[in-house]
Design a protein around this nucleic acid. Structure first.
Lengths: 76, 76
DNA sequence: TCCATATGTGACTCATAGTCCGTTGACTTA
DNA sequence: TAAGTCAACGGACTATGAGTCACATATGGA
């Protein structure tokens, strides 16, 4: 599985756990709603600045964000 | 401190620990030599695909890469 | 049925990610 | 004095990510 796909899955997982809509999270992260949609669906090769914004909006540390089975076994 | 700066520091730290030159790591990660320099110096807003390539070239898991004090306290 | 909320998609512009050519300076070894 | 390795930088270039929009779809409630 592609890393950008894994990233999207993780974002969606954490967003749903917080009971937020894509739009609410996008607002908090200061990105466009449709951009957030494509990130969650693994369509975007997100750059690290936006990764930081999104993780911060999820109220989780970088460490905790990446510490999950989703990121086991990167194909690349 | 900026996330892309923290990322660069972490890459450099792990690269030196492995005794690799920037060029050797760049070759392994399949990115440009000059690009690796600017990444380590926090000048690049690296996209997640290249983050994956670089971390893989460092022979470390995503989890372990981000589990370090360097990533404590993101300003964003 | 109508309306609001939530999500997804294709296309677009523009800034920049990333490559490839080279140079320079610091350091090391011969 | 070379001659080599390494890190950093720069200019020019191409590929692609950032950011936005119109529009579509699905759902649930009044």
């Amino acid at each position: 599985m592609d890393l950008q796909v894994q990233f999207g899955k993780r974002v969606k997982e954490l967003r749903l756990a917080k009971g937020l809509s894509q739009e609410a999270l996008a607002l908090k992260a200061e990105v466009d709603r449709t951009y957030m949609t494509s990130v969650e669906n693994g369509k975007r090769n997100v750059a690290i600045q936006n990764i930081g914004k999104i993780i911060a909006a999820l109220d989780i540390s970088i460490q905790d964000f990446f510490t999950t089975d989703i990121f086991e076994g990167i194909d690349e």
